[in-house]
């Protein structure tokens, strides 16, 4: 597999000055502990705590995108599809505060040598955090550029000891009526389920994600842990994961079950395969000025050099 490395460029070229200055101050200020709490968590009426943002110490990654303007933190946190908190894009920012992300565990189930439950704090310390600047392309034809923080999902999968028969990985998100009062607003059956083929899950670009802009994930962006699969439409990247299950068959996935003609299992970003209701040839860049929003969509969201080999010989019009 060919992984093209981008040349190292100063973050000053892509990050707003105020942001990288504050990050730099912070990085020189702390010891290499991985995570440092800046504010104590707030106790909620469910007994758990809503964690305020914590700084994450990250190293730069050669897999990061270069030369594109980052979407602002304001836009990344106020334009979300997280239907458990309501169907309007502003709903998650308004409602997700009720979700408590501590204590939090991820169950590892299915075809593994030994099933286990992993605590979020163990996951956070498992590998060094990297900053990965990725394009994020929603199936609804809008896109962002996000500086995620995390490490390759493959690092975690290796520690799960999947059995040889494990061909797919399924991700299940939190579905708790008490913390998500809007969960019945849509006609979707929760918990949200997504899945990847094992080779997709093991691809170094696939990121087990804990933060963005150098801090832990805001709740509306899928705290405390999610996956990011940058060459697929956004809905493939499950949020607020509570279970990772290894299976021998393609797992059922939420949007595919809702409308299989519109949302395929693969859902690779592909400008040549239209959504039945709209074109995927172009996209609207979030945060860009009105007349500059529209831009062409790239095959595999621009990650073709790294991932096209995964789909060699497959008819991508059939396996959309």
């Amino acid at each position: 597999m060919l992984i093209r490395k981008s040349p190292d460029i100063p973050s000053s070229e892509i990050t707003p000055k105020a942001d990288y200055l504050s990050r730099r101050t912070f990085m020189t200020g702390i010891a290499a502990t991985g995570v440092t709490a800046l504010t104590a968590g707030r106790v909620t009426r469910w007994g758990g705590t809503v964690h305020a943002a914590e700084k994450l110490q990250t190293v730069k990654s050669p897999l990061s995108l270069k030369g594109e303007t980052l979407t602002s933190l304001q836009d990344i946190t106020h334009y979300n599809n997280f239907y458990e908190f309501g169907t309007d894009k502003g709903d998650p920012a308004r409602n997700a505060g009720a979700m408590h992300t501590r204590p939090w565990t991820v169950q590892v189930t299915g075809l593994v040598k030994k099933k286990k439950t992993v605590d979020i704090d163990t996951l956070l310390k498992l590998k060094p955090m990297e900053e990965r600047i990725y394009r994020f392309r929603c199936v609804e034809a809008w896109s962002m550029v996000v500086p995620w923080a995390g490490y390759s999902l493959s690092e975690f999968i290796k520690q799960c000891d999947p059995q040889p028969g494990a061909k797919y990985v399924q991700f299940l998100s939190l579905a708790d009526r008490k913390q998500m009062p809007q969960i019945n607003e849509s006609g979707i059956h929760f918990p949200y389920s997504e899945g990847l083929r094992m080779d997709e899950a093991m691809h170094p670009l696939t990121l087990l994600t804990f933060g963005l802009y150098g801090e832990t994930l805001p709740n509306q962006d899928g705290a405390p842990v999610r996956v990011i699969v940058p060459w697929k439409y956004g809905f493939k990247s499950a949020k607020s994961i509570v279970e990772i299950r290894f299976t021998d068959k393609e797992p059922p996935t939420t949007w595919n079950m809702m409308a299989s003609n519109e949302y395929g299992f693969y859902s690779n970003v592909n400008p040549n395969v239209d959504h039945p209701r709209w074109s995927q040839k172009t996209e609207r860049r979030i945060g860009a000025s009105l007349f500059k929003q529209r831009q062409p969509t790239l095959m595999f969201n621009g990650y073709g050099d790294q991932v096209a080999s995964l789909y060699k010989g497959m008819d991508l019009k059939k396996y959309f």
């Binding site: 979030i286 009105l290 929003q293």
Partner: peptide, 18 residues
Amino acid sequence: HDLRHPDAVALLGPDPTA
């Protein structure tokens, strides 16, 4: 407003076209 002040928080929100 948004066209005149591209650096201010956009009054039309993150996705002005939509």
